[in-house]
Design a protein around this nucleic acid. Structure first.
Lengths: 199, 199, 199, 199
DNA sequence: TCGTAATCGAGACGGTACGTCATGTCTTGTT
DNA sequence: AACAAGACATGACGTACCGTCTCGATTACGA
């Protein structure tokens, strides 16, 4: 990736990325998302607009970068207990979405729909995460850990889709409990040590 | 509902709405969603821009109106067979979303997030539809038609949420089959009283 | 002028003119001249915009009407003492201009320049007043009352022109003293009973 | 005066000013003053509207700039013969006003009355010119070159005021002869040291 | 007394321009 | 090269007037 690069000329100021991203976050906090213009961010970061565009191809990419740092990495941990794994995963994603907030997500969505290249990139990024969850679930199905009638891809959509839906299209809060309820809803109620649902 | 108003002043030209909406639809079809400016729509409709703004507070409201007409009215029909009712409903919503297309949906989403008033209005509009489905499912639960462990609101989210999710965030197509699969996935496989498909 | 007119139909509401003009004056006082729109005036007068346009061909004509009522009729009184007559006349015009104010005058000026018909009408209206002054002065010249080298038309312009000039283009106030000074300046200093300027 | 500025950022395209002003002049010539919109000028100049607004705060300022270039610089030349100096000056101003035309002048006047800041700026600009003439005349008075009873400021108003008055409020033409007649009218007929025209 | 004609209130409508905002590119001089 | 500064093209936004129009509801006069 970083092949010896001869790197002629003045080297890049290393903390510019941080300053810009911080400025973006602060701008959103103080002036709301609507006030997030590249000009404003650059000025707040004490950086020229040119410098911003040298690092990110456009506003959408900058925002995408910002959001991916706001979310903790929602990598799926596979422990063998698929229900718990999915629950943790779903809760993490929900938390990430809440941290980022509806405005950012919505704007990125619009950018994805209007800029094909950006859309493809973002979709690919998320596809990987989704694929991991699907595979884990698929293996659990094969292991007989969950109802064999379930389609793994559909189930995963039914875990993640409602998160975005709630965030963007309803007034209801996106809580960890909600995320867990989603898991129970598709996988069926969890078995209890004492007194299972089907005695 | 409010047909009793005294009707003062010059009445609105009845087909202006139609002309504007038609012009908007045509503009999107020919120039893509990105080319949809209020100026362009007004000109194409043979109408003054001010006339457009008299009827719709802004571009977003016009587009929202347009989309709600592009979707067939996804009113939930209650027949007593909740599974079939929900399936039909979900398929309809999916078809509506496909008809409207990701770009429109995404942009409206962004508008909702940036204009609080618009967001509130749209959310309220959809909340009604959602409420109907929740209530129908709730009654089916009480009737014992479906698993009593299911939370109606969560289930409905798991039917509708994935539709938006697929449309906006994945490359996978949004088909009627997918919509039906969602129903089966949360409600469990359909019972086969008289002869299953593969006996 | 008012030839027997059959006067069919509903007669005009007699005090509408007054109400509209009053509303115009009030609007200027409270919202400044910039806020003087026909809509605003009509609303304030409790009158429909149509009604305004039925009486005045356009905004400029309304404003012209308003100004002519703000100025007291500056008809030239001829007493035989041309210097005193012109002084009184000039002072009256100055007072009228001050009462009307620069904004109104300026806007009427612009309207005159942009609407030929309106311009012609207004010019004709003032031409009469000007002609009277010129004739009075001309007779005084013939009577030997003033310097025979003076051109009456030029002198009158040098009395009235500076009034508009001061009002519109300088910061200096338009006082009665200034108006009188103008007369002295062109006609030479007034003769004194005891001790003339050239003993 | 301020040529010492560090010159940061991309320098302004030097001929943009020229192109815009030329476009404005041409637009007025072809489409009349009424057709002078900032949009039209910008397009004709091959320049973005924003670029116009970067240089001139608004339409009025642009037009004002244009007019000041249409008038040849009416700086007062002081030769010692005050009568000739003032005559030349007055003729120049008259010529400038004619070149600019009543419509422009009238509209600028209206702009001055409606936008206080613009008005103040324009008044200040002209005040300098006026002050110069007043001072020159004042010195001539002290030198005994003209009637000591004359008030310099009043006289200057009586030279310039009638020019505007004729241009804007009468149908009479604004000729050089008229301008010269104004001078004779206030200063008295010119002395004929060596042989008058009609002895 | 009843119809006819004009007035009035209300507000829709076409038209035109305004000034603003944000994106992303480009052009300087400076480090 | 990277960087700061800022000019520039582009394109849309929403607003404000103007003057015209189309309704329904009045209000007189004349047949």
């Amino acid at each position: 990736m970083s092949e010896a690069r001869p790197r002629r000329g003045r080297p890049r100021d290393t903390d510019v990325d941080q300053r810009v991203l911080a400025a973006a976050r602060e701008t959103i906090e103080t002036h709301g998302y609507a006030g997030l213009s590249v000009d404003a961010v650059a000025e707040r970061a004490g950086v020229a607009k040119t410098t911003v565009y040298r690092r990110w191809p456009g506003k959408a990419w900058l925002v995408a970068d910002l959001t991916s740092r706001l979310q903790e990495e929602a990598g799926l941990e596979v422990t063998g207990d698929i229900r718990a794994d999915l629950a943790r995963h779903t809760v993490k994603i929900a938390a990430g979405l809440v941290a980022v907030g509806p405005a950012l997500v919505a704007d990125l969505t619009a950018a994805m729909a209007n800029d094909p290249e950006f859309g493809a990139t973002m979709r690919a990024r998320w596809a990987r995460r989704r694929q991991l969850a699907v595979e884990a679930l698929d293996q659990a199905v094969r292991r007989g850990e969950v109802d064999p009638g379930l389609d793994p891809a559909t189930v995963v959509d039914q875990l993640v889709g409602p998160l975005y839906y709630r965030l963007l299209f309803t007034d209801d809060p996106l809580t960890p409990e909600y995320a867990e309820r989603l898991v129970d809803s598709v996988l069926g109620p969890p078995p209890h040590p004492e007194g299972p649902s089907h005695p």
